[in-house]
Design a protein around this nucleic acid. Structure first.
Lengths: 335, 335
DNA sequence: CAGGTTTCTGAAAGCGATTCCATTCTGATG
DNA sequence: CATCAGAATGGAATCGCTTTCAGAAACCTG
């Protein structure tokens, strides 16, 4: 293995000291154009890449940011996670950072040694991890709101807009009895989506029947079970909204098993635009948000924070309402 | 922010030198039980965690391994990726490593500075990246076979077994005209699965009709298009195998669009057990393999390699054949 | 042209660990 | 009792880079 080339080698090649090389590379001090040119050329020729460990040691920085995944029984869908990661990695790269994954299982004070900051996901209303990271003074930004109302460093989808369009859509299709399948209430995004749903009722002057709303886990089973809860109350909406696509899917399956057809007997709306949502039959009407983009923005925000640059916050990303097969005009029998 | 505690602080607290502390922590030299005890206690009390950058610098190691994702137009499904990553991260943690993602886009010689080794995925038969990593002498292991027949450091699913069971299954259901939808031939896993499929024909004494086999991209469109290719030849299998579930899904959709029902008019078998495979209607008969486990094994293998420990290789993981709705007894009309 | 600025470069001190080698101490051996 | 082996610990160099501060050189300016 040919010897690793260090900053000294570059310095020697140019006939300056390591200090100078470091200065041109980091732009710290003023360096004459002539010297700069020669240094850069030597760097090029020798294929010099600075040793990250050494730099990290003196800068007290690791140039690594983390994507934090809470809880092992994933609530996060795989694609959410993969997309966010992909976005983060892309911008991290631009700024000389790499990203690694931190699962809550493997959390210990030594993470502080490994990463400069975190992107948090799936925040709860009052999030224990947020407290923890604040305490150990680990900088972070969040994907989605939550944790603590004072937090401002987050990027979020324009839920408001998405749900508004979705509700308008079914309203225009003639639906007046809308139900809602909530995920676990501890999560901020669950509450937020539901709040918007309620606000839309107010705006449309539509009464909201609480009996048409129920809670379940964020899973197919959860969706089915929430649906069951509503039926058990002896009521029946003509259209039902779910916190997430996966719950919507569970609800659809439940309905099918009980002889109801979607969308003929009931319309269903999800949220997230999970990748299965367009595969399944009926395909699920939902609200698409761009997690990849959110990952990019989050990484950008975090790195700006770490590097002491300015950044705007919070960031709100547009969403897109995606009507598909699971919603249709209300049928006469259902009026 | 309270000052970071270093190895010196620990040493001072105990009344020894950093050397001694380092020795007890790394088990390098013999240390009296008494001293060891006191050092450990001080470490505990002071909450000392060694500075990774410093250690990395002298050890010339980063204690980071990477998961390598080739090509941006992902062929890998999100869940494959997420599962592998989860498995890797878990065992990495045990050995004091962290894992980060390396996309082929962001590949440069400086990755060498950031990671000690890589887990490769989606190998081609003759893989350019394998060549590259060999050249820059970056240790790696692979998830799946490929790249170069001499490579032995890989973990693989027991494809053989899976396809054997799948073929037997449809054979017992009465099917005799089996087709095959191949993904891109450059990928080793595509070839391998197909080879096994052919071998099964030999074993069963079944003639293999090449006209029933076609190639397409690894996507829904690709599955549909391969299916179309076969039909265009004026032939029609009674059961069709696909390289992957996503291609199987595409094929099913294609069949539906052309008035053929699955499984009544044609049985379909996938491979991978993607997460949508149980959601869709009909749910897809497939071969399940445990990517999470594969991720664990791969990380274990890589770290053993890096740390100079013994490890067995290659590793073959069991698979499970999962019959679902997309396969059934051959109907009379099809005989 | 003396004196004051400005511009550019270098010497040296770390950053926080590890590691080679030397040193001290103890106890055993002939 | 001199010698020596072995056990436990410490001294000092080192990994490759950044950074502070000082000094040299060049440039003004009145």
């Amino acid at each position: 293995m040919r010897k690793k080339v260090t900053i000294k080698d570059v310095a020697k090649a140019v006939g300056v000291t390591p200090t100078t090389v470091s200065n041109v590379l980091n732009g710290t001090n003023r360096i004459s154009d002539e010297t700069r040119r020669r240094v850069l050329q030597a760097v090029e020729e020798l294929q010099y890449t600075p040793n990250m460990s050494a730099r990290a040691l003196v800068k007290r920085r690791t140039y690594t940011i983390g994507l934090f995944i809470p809880a092992s029984p994933r609530v996060l869908s795989d694609s959410y996670f993969a997309e966010a990661l992909r976005g983060m990695t892309e911008v991290a790269l631009q700024y000389g950072y790499v990203v690694s994954i931190i699962y809550s299982d493997g959390l210990s004070d030594s993470v502080r040694q490994r990463i400069d900051g975190l992107v948090l996901t799936e925040l709860k209303n009052k999030d224990e991890y947020v407290q923890y990271f604040k305490r150990i003074r680990l900088p972070f930004v969040a994907l989605g709101r939550g944790g603590d109302p004072t937090l401002r460093d987050y990027v979020i989808s324009d839920t408001n807009r998405g749900i508004r369009e979705a509700v308008n859509h079914v309203y225009r299709l003639g639906h007046r009895h809308l139900g809602y399948l909530l995920g676990p209430l501890g999560y901020e995004y669950v509450c937020e989506r539901y709040r918007t749903f309620r606000r839309m009722h107010a705006e449309l002057g539509l009464p909201l029947d609480r009996r048409l709303c129920a809670t379940g886990e964020n899973s197919r089973e959860g969706g089915a079970s929430a649906m069951r809860t509503i039926f058990a109350r002896g009521v029946r909406p003509t259209a039902i909204f779910a916190s997430t696509d996966i719950m919507a899917l569970g609800a659809i399956e439940y309905l099918h098993e009980h002889g109801l057809r979607v969308p003929d007997d009931m319309s269903v709306v999800g949220f997230d635009d999970a990748d299965f949502s367009k595969y399944v039959r009926p395909s699920i009407t939902t609200v698409h948000h761009d997690i990849y983009r959110a990952g990019r923005e989050a990484a950008f925000m975090l790195i700006a924070k770490l590097d002491g640059r300015e950044y705007k916050r919070p960031v709100t990303l547009p969403v897109r309402f995606v009507p598909r097969e699971s919603t249709s005009t209300i049928s006469l029998s259902n009026q």
